[in-house]
Simulated scan of single mutants.
Amino acid sequence: MDIRQYLDSTYLKTASQAGLTKAENREVVINFVQEAIDERFKLIMIRPDMVAMAKEMISNVHSKVTIGTVIDFPEGNGLLEDKLKEANQAIKDGADDLDFVIDYQAFISGQTDLVKKQVFEGTRLGLEHHKIVKWIIEVAALNEHQIVQLSALIKNVVLAHFKESHYESVFVKSSTGFYKTEGGLPNGATVAAIKLMVENSFPLPVKAAGGVRTYEEAVEMIQLGVKRIGTSSAKAIADGGTAKNEY
């Protein structure tokens, strides 16, 4: 199986997180974008401030690689107006996919109306501009019951307010890859979490992000029904190797 068209090649570290200068970190992003072009990956997933640069690189060589970025990342607890402002700027800069971090903390505390409004407004903005929208639920912060509930909440908002032809453009995504877990527990996609997401998000597609480290694990996720896989080691996985990075 050629899994390149499932892979969202991902680099989301800031310069300080990577221990680099801003110029050095920008060079890392440039290399990730070039690799995505060379390897014909589905998408390059980068921070919002790098989107315009990536758009220029990809357009200059007429590549089909698309550009994704993260919104309200990684905590997801910003105001709705700030989420939408950031998303609007990403759209202007050339982003194709908008990966919103849902306010999972608000969901856990029972503020479901707030979360539903986020999903509706963010999805509407993305679809109005013909973008792919993904909602990151941060499975490592949730128990199994909450994964089921939050996946179903997103699905129900989309099914209630948008056309069936739009369903394939709204994903439920597992993880940011930046959530801090205790005791060495995984902070990304797991088989158990993905099964729950696929079962309770359908007919919306699911993206497995973080924790997929080998070609075999990627194939397993695809067989579970995942439509996209986010990884910072896309080339290693596509080549049948093992990811060296954590995400």
Score class of each variant (00 low, 15 high):
residue 31 N to Q: 14
residue 134 K to C: 00
residue 179 Y to G: 08
residue 120 F to R: 15
residue 183 G to W: 00
residue 71 I to A: 02
residue 222 I to F: 01
residue 243 A to L: 02
residue 230 G to M: 08
residue 215 Y to C: 07
residue 67 I to F: 15
residue 133 V to F: 00
residue 7 L to T: 00
residue 209 A to C: 08
residue 123 T to P: 06
residue 2 D to K: 13
residue 142 L to A: 09
residue 38 D to S: 11
residue 207 K to V: 01
residue 242 T to K: 13
residue 190 T to Q: 02
residue 94 G to S: 07
residue 51 V to E: 13
residue 19 G to W: 05
residue 2 D to N: 15
residue 63 S to Q: 12
residue 21 T to P: 02
residue 23 A to T: 07
residue 89 Q to E: 15
residue 81 E to R: 13
residue 119 V to T: 04
residue 17 Q to Y: 09
residue 177 G to C: 08
residue 137 I to S: 13
residue 114 L to F: 05
residue 6 Y to L: 11
residue 86 E to L: 05
residue 183 G to I: 10
residue 208 A to W: 15
residue 85 K to F: 08
residue 235 K to C: 10
residue 56 E to H: 15
residue 5 Q to P: 01
residue 104 Y to Q: 08
residue 200 N to V: 01
residue 121 E to P: 11
residue 174 S to N: 09
residue 234 A to S: 11
residue 92 K to D: 09
residue 70 V to Y: 04
residue 81 E to D: 09
residue 14 T to M: 09
residue 82 D to Y: 00
residue 122 G to C: 08
residue 65 V to C: 12
residue 73 F to E: 06
residue 105 Q to G: 00
residue 85 K to C: 01
residue 228 R to W: 03
residue 126 G to S: 03
residue 232 S to F: 02
residue 12 L to H: 07
residue 34 Q to A: 06
residue 239 D to E: 15
residue 218 A to F: 01
residue 187 N to K: 14
residue 90 A to Q: 00
residue 225 G to L: 08
residue 223 Q to S: 09
residue 81 E to G: 06
residue 87 A to W: 05
residue 16 S to H: 07
residue 112 T to K: 15
residue 27 E to A: 12
residue 238 A to P: 09
residue 140 A to L: 08
residue 165 S to P: 03
residue 242 T to L: 03
residue 168 E to C: 00
residue 154 I to R: 07
residue 201 S to Y: 04
residue 239 D to T: 00
residue 57 M to P: 03
residue 239 D to A: 15
residue 7 L to E: 05
residue 216 E to P: 03
residue 73 F to P: 07
residue 210 G to I: 06
residue 17 Q to R: 13
residue 87 A to P: 00
residue 68 G to D: 11
residue 46 I to V: 10
residue 121 E to K: 13
residue 215 Y to H: 13
residue 207 K to D: 03
residue 45 M to K: 03
residue 100 F to G: 10
residue 58 I to K: 03
residue 61 V to R: 05
residue 136 I to P: 12
residue 230 G to I: 05
residue 165 S to R: 11
residue 231 T to W: 07
residue 86 E to G: 06
residue 191 V to Q: 13
residue 46 I to D: 05
residue 4 R to D: 08
residue 134 K to V: 04
residue 206 V to S: 03
residue 221 M to A: 08
residue 244 K to G: 04
residue 130 H to K: 15
residue 165 S to F: 04
residue 79 L to A: 10
residue 41 F to G: 14
residue 26 R to C: 06
residue 12 L to R: 07
residue 229 I to Q: 10
residue 75 E to F: 12
residue 107 F to G: 12
residue 128 E to V: 00
residue 110 G to T: 04
residue 189 A to Q: 08
residue 54 A to M: 15
residue 199 E to H: 08
residue 245 N to V: 01
residue 123 T to V: 10
residue 150 L to H: 02
residue 108 I to G: 06
residue 223 Q to K: 14
residue 158 V to H: 00
residue 97 D to E: 13
residue 181 T to S: 12
residue 30 I to M: 11
residue 23 A to H: 02
residue 64 K to E: 15
residue 77 N to G: 04
residue 174 S to C: 01
residue 95 A to K: 12
residue 174 S to A: 10
residue 18 A to T: 06
residue 59 S to F: 06
residue 82 D to T: 12
residue 240 G to Y: 09
residue 70 V to G: 02
residue 133 V to T: 10
